[in-house]
Structure formats: structure tokens, C-alpha cells
Simulated assay, not measured.
Amino acid sequence: MAADSALGTALRSAAWIAGGTAAAGAAALGYASLIERNLFGVRTETVPVLPPGSAPLRVLHLSDIHFVPNQNIKTRWLQSLAELEPDLVVNTGDNLSHRDAVPPLLDALKPLLRFPGVYVPGSNDYYGPKLKSPFTYFTGPSKLSSEPPALPFGELFGAFEDAGWAGLTNRRDSMALGGVRLDFSGVDDPHLDRDVYPGFPEPAAEGTPALRIGVAHAPYQRVLNYFTDGGAELILAGHTHGGQVCVPFYGALVSNCDLPTWRAKGVSMWEHNGRKVPMNVSAGIGTSRFAPVRFACRPEAVLLTLTPRA
């Protein structure tokens, strides 16, 4: 009888533990899908990259919006970002997650389109997501599905261009801002192997303050090396979602590219051939509409204050 009693107690304890674990898992999933993915915030960084004597510049870095119609909380938050009064907006792609998202996304971005801006595309500007197991995200860089649904990227990018934002799809370009010439080099999405490094614009005239900025959606190492060897002084990218589902006090488990996971979010120094370049990787604003969860990785825009080098 004693043995039967002990066995019964053990079974009840195991059932209690299993039930508690399931409840905790359900609570975490509910938090990740209903709460954290809508806890939008602005990460602020100061990066000393401008020529000596320059006035500071405020750069708003947007990435991975993955917009779906009727995302009202996201819409209001995006509209509110104009209150930051950035000098420049840099959009590093993956704006869409639905074929009907362009008009409501443009409405959400309308207050920001009055500021100077540049953009590069991501795969989820060209193609929509398809339903698949979310666990494939943890098996390595994601692959484009066969016959992916096309998205109206031409309509979106046409509106960006009409507002004055410069497209950097395998292009280089320059603009004068705050007394500094900003020289950009941008690539099409490296995650789709569409990147063709265009180099940077020819050097500014002697005595002209200038800053070279490399812009890409996915921070694959080959592209970071192109920019670094080409003389970039700042690199901006997205794509990683910061890992999207992270381990508290540890960080990202995946970067969805060949970037080390500890670089999946934030400012770090990229080094190649003896040069070091500050790089900001955004954790992004949205998620695929088929995997609408974030855990220990809140959605973000990034406000970079560029200051003079020492």
C-alpha cells in the first residue's frame, strides 16, 4: 500500500508539473503574441561619426514594418514618430506583409515622408509570406518559398520616390544635410542574393565635410565587408528582428543570416581588413503575419544622433 501511495503521489506531482509547464507556456505565448509585439518603442543611440566641427544629425532608422491592414496600434505609433523631428529617415526594407497593405502603410508613414529619406528593399517588399511552421526559423536562414505571392512594391516605392526619398537599390547617391555631404551606398536584398555593390560616390571636393553610409536590408557579412572596404563610416541594416524570440538575459538564438547572433540588435563595430565601422542593426517593428510573436525582443525604431568624431 505504501508503494501504491508513493506512486500515486509521484504521478500527481508529475501531472501538476506538466500542467504548470503547459500553463506557463500558454501564458508566454499569449504575452508574446498579444502584448509584446505591440510594445513599440524607440531605441536611442549616439554615434560619433561626423567630421569634426559638424552639427549633430538625427537619423531615424526604420526596418521590418511588415505591415498588415488594420494594424491600428502600429499605425498610430508610426505616425507619432514624426514628433521626433529627424533630419533623415533611413528605411531598410521589409515594409509589407500583405498585398493590400500599401495604402494604409503610406497613411501610417505620411507624417514621416515630409522628412528627407533613403530606402532599400527587403524580400517582404517583393514577396508576401506563406504559412509554414515557425520552427523552421530556428533551422538557419529562411528560404524563399516556391511561387511566393507577389507584393505591389512598385506602388510603395513610387510613393517613396514621389515624396523625395531616394532609392538605393544597388545604387549610390549623395545629399547635403546640415552642412555635411552624406554619401550613400545601398544594395538590393542580400537575403535574396540580389545585392550588387555599387561603391560610394566619388569623394567630395577637398574641405567638404562628408560621411559615407552603407545601407542594406540583411546584414550578410559579404555586404558588410564591401561597405567597410569601400570606406563606409556607418552601416545600417535590419532583417534579423533582433532574434524575434529571445532568451532573457542571453539574447538572440538566430539572426536569419550569417551575422553572429550577438550582433542581431544594436550598435556594434564591424571590422574587416583592419578597418572598424559602427553598424546599427534594428530589431525591427513588425513580424510575419503568420508568426505574430515577439518575446524578450520588443519592436523598435532607432533614433541615431550622429555627432562629430573626437
Score class of each variant (00 low, 15 high):
A216E: 05
P149N: 09
A163V: 09
S185K: 02
S133Q: 02
L105C: 10
P134V: 13
L192H: 00
S174T: 15
A150L: 14
G93D: 01
S185Q: 02
G93Y: 04
L151Y: 14
I213M: 05
K130N: 01
P86H: 09
L177P: 03
G140V: 12
G186F: 04
L109T: 07
P201M: 13
P86G: 07
K132V: 12
F184H: 04
A150N: 02
R181T: 14
R114L: 13
P111M: 13
G128Q: 04
S142V: 11
L84P: 01
T169V: 14
V102K: 10
R172M: 12
L113H: 10
P121L: 12
L144T: 12
N95T: 06
V180A: 10
D173L: 09
Y220Q: 07
P198Q: 08
G167C: 08
F157T: 08
A176E: 15
V120G: 01
N95C: 15
V187D: 04
L96E: 04
A163C: 10
P121Q: 08
T139N: 01
V102D: 07
P103T: 06
S97W: 01
G214H: 07
Y137P: 00
T139H: 00
A163G: 07
L131K: 14
S185I: 07
S133L: 13
G93A: 02
A101R: 03
H217L: 06
L131D: 03
H98L: 00
L113G: 08
V118I: 14
G178L: 09
P203M: 13
H217D: 01
S174W: 01
A218R: 00
A204P: 07
P129Q: 09
L156Q: 06
M175C: 09
Y127R: 02
G186T: 08
T139W: 00
I213P: 05
G199F: 11
G164Y: 04
V187W: 01
A205D: 15
V89M: 08
G179V: 13
G128C: 04
L168C: 06
V196H: 11
G140P: 05
P86M: 12
V215D: 04
P209Y: 14
A150H: 11
D125G: 03
G128N: 13
F200T: 04
L113D: 13
R114K: 15
T92W: 01
A108K: 10
V187Y: 02
Y220E: 08
R222P: 00
V90G: 02
K110M: 08
P121N: 03
H191K: 06
L192N: 07
G164S: 10
L113S: 11
L211I: 11
P209D: 10
P103F: 10
P104Q: 09
Y126H: 04
I213G: 03
R171Q: 15
H191D: 05
R114H: 13
T208I: 15
S145R: 12
I213E: 02
P134K: 02
F153S: 09
Y127F: 15
S133I: 02
E147A: 14
Y137E: 12
G117H: 05
E155F: 02
P190L: 05
Y127L: 12
K143R: 14
